[in-house]
Simulated scan of single mutants.
Amino acid sequence: MIFDSGQHVLFIGDSITDCGRRDAAAPYGDGYMSLVRAFVTAGRPDLHLTWTNRGIGGDTVRHLAERWERDVVELRPDWLSVKIGINDVWRTFAGLPDEAVPIDEYERTLRQLLRRAVDATGCRLILADPYVIEADREEPQRAETARYAAVVAGLAEEFGARHVRTQEAFDRVLEHSTGSDWADDRIHPNLPGHAVIARAFLAVIGD
């Protein structure tokens, strides 16, 4: 287990992290973050961890930059989990190129945000890949998302972060299933899909 007693664990990202945490499923959402919290708490109730969800649906790294001080730095987490990038890629394929984030901007912005968080709070990092629940690795959105995931892998190495390979997790289950078993739109998981992500996190956390 990577966590120590009394630590604060903060998750930030887009709709996959948000998952209703600002609405009916407040304050943790009903997705992977809530599952990770539940299993870690059940396995190690002695740790008395504090958990915070700061996911917001539709966010890209540009949106994270706008709220980073308020939603990360001021909350001073001991561990910061960042899962961002799906919208940065998807907006291009949705016919919204002005809202998409080019890969060089994505990398530059994410690096700056991570550096600010580490320097200001001393937090440790958990970085999770963007993904598409698509078995065909040559499919255009899947192939482009892989490039952004490679950026996350590089930053994880650069910052000594724990790296959650969510695309690889979905690739494993897709060997025995179809994409619709996990999400209707290849992006927003159902509960079993969120469990796939949560299991990838738990493997990294060491539960």
Score class of each variant (00 low, 15 high):
residue 1 M to P: 08
residue 1 M to W: 08
residue 1 M to V: 06
residue 2 I to K: 15
residue 3 F to T: 03
residue 4 D to R: 15
residue 5 S to Y: 14
residue 6 G to T: 00
residue 7 Q to P: 01
residue 10 L to D: 00
residue 13 G to A: 10
residue 13 G to L: 05
residue 14 D to G: 06
residue 15 S to L: 10
residue 15 S to A: 14
residue 17 T to P: 04
residue 17 T to V: 12
residue 18 D to C: 01
residue 24 A to V: 04
residue 25 A to H: 08
residue 25 A to M: 11
residue 29 G to K: 06
residue 29 G to H: 06
residue 30 D to K: 09
residue 31 G to Y: 08
residue 34 S to I: 00
residue 34 S to Y: 07
residue 38 A to F: 03
residue 39 F to V: 04
residue 40 V to K: 01
residue 40 V to T: 08
residue 41 T to E: 15
residue 45 P to W: 12
residue 45 P to H: 08
residue 46 D to P: 02
residue 46 D to K: 11
residue 47 L to I: 05
residue 47 L to T: 04
residue 48 H to F: 09
residue 49 L to A: 02
residue 49 L to P: 02
residue 50 T to H: 13
residue 51 W to D: 02
residue 53 N to T: 12
residue 54 R to S: 09
residue 54 R to G: 00
residue 56 I to L: 14
residue 59 D to I: 03
residue 60 T to S: 12
residue 61 V to H: 07
residue 62 R to P: 00
residue 63 H to T: 05
residue 63 H to Y: 14
residue 64 L to N: 02
residue 65 A to H: 11
residue 66 E to D: 14
residue 66 E to H: 11
residue 67 R to F: 04
residue 69 E to C: 01
residue 75 L to C: 07
residue 76 R to E: 10
residue 77 P to I: 07
residue 78 D to R: 11
residue 80 L to D: 00
residue 81 S to V: 04
residue 83 K to A: 13
residue 83 K to D: 04
residue 85 G to H: 11
residue 85 G to S: 06
residue 86 I to E: 03
residue 87 N to T: 03
residue 88 D to M: 02
residue 89 V to P: 07
residue 90 W to A: 11
residue 90 W to H: 08
residue 91 R to V: 00
residue 92 T to H: 13
residue 92 T to A: 12
residue 93 F to D: 02
residue 93 F to N: 04
residue 96 L to S: 09
residue 96 L to P: 03
residue 97 P to T: 04
residue 98 D to E: 15
residue 98 D to K: 13
residue 101 V to D: 03
residue 101 V to Y: 06
residue 105 E to M: 01
residue 108 R to I: 01
residue 109 T to D: 08
residue 109 T to M: 10
residue 112 Q to N: 12
residue 113 L to K: 02
residue 114 L to D: 02
residue 116 R to K: 13
residue 117 A to V: 08
residue 118 V to L: 07
residue 119 D to H: 12
residue 122 G to S: 13
residue 127 L to R: 01
residue 128 A to M: 07
residue 129 D to G: 02
residue 129 D to I: 00
residue 130 P to Q: 06
residue 130 P to E: 10
residue 131 Y to S: 05
residue 132 V to C: 10
residue 133 I to G: 03
residue 138 E to M: 10
residue 143 A to Y: 08
residue 143 A to C: 00
residue 144 E to S: 00
residue 145 T to S: 10
residue 145 T to K: 05
residue 146 A to M: 10
residue 146 A to G: 09
residue 146 A to V: 01
residue 147 R to L: 15
residue 148 Y to W: 09
residue 150 A to T: 10
residue 150 A to H: 13
residue 150 A to E: 15
residue 152 V to A: 04
residue 153 A to D: 14
residue 154 G to I: 08
residue 154 G to E: 06
residue 155 L to C: 11
residue 156 A to H: 07
residue 160 G to A: 09
residue 168 E to R: 14
residue 173 V to T: 05
residue 174 L to Q: 08
residue 178 T to P: 01
residue 178 T to M: 11
residue 178 T to E: 15
residue 178 T to R: 15
residue 179 G to D: 06
residue 180 S to E: 15
residue 180 S to N: 05
residue 181 D to T: 13
residue 184 D to L: 13
residue 184 D to R: 15
residue 185 D to F: 10
residue 188 H to S: 00
residue 190 N to D: 02
residue 193 G to D: 00
residue 195 A to T: 15
residue 195 A to K: 13
residue 197 I to N: 03
residue 198 A to S: 11
residue 198 A to W: 06
residue 200 A to G: 03
residue 206 G to S: 11
residue 206 G to N: 04
residue 207 D to N: 07
residue 207 D to W: 12
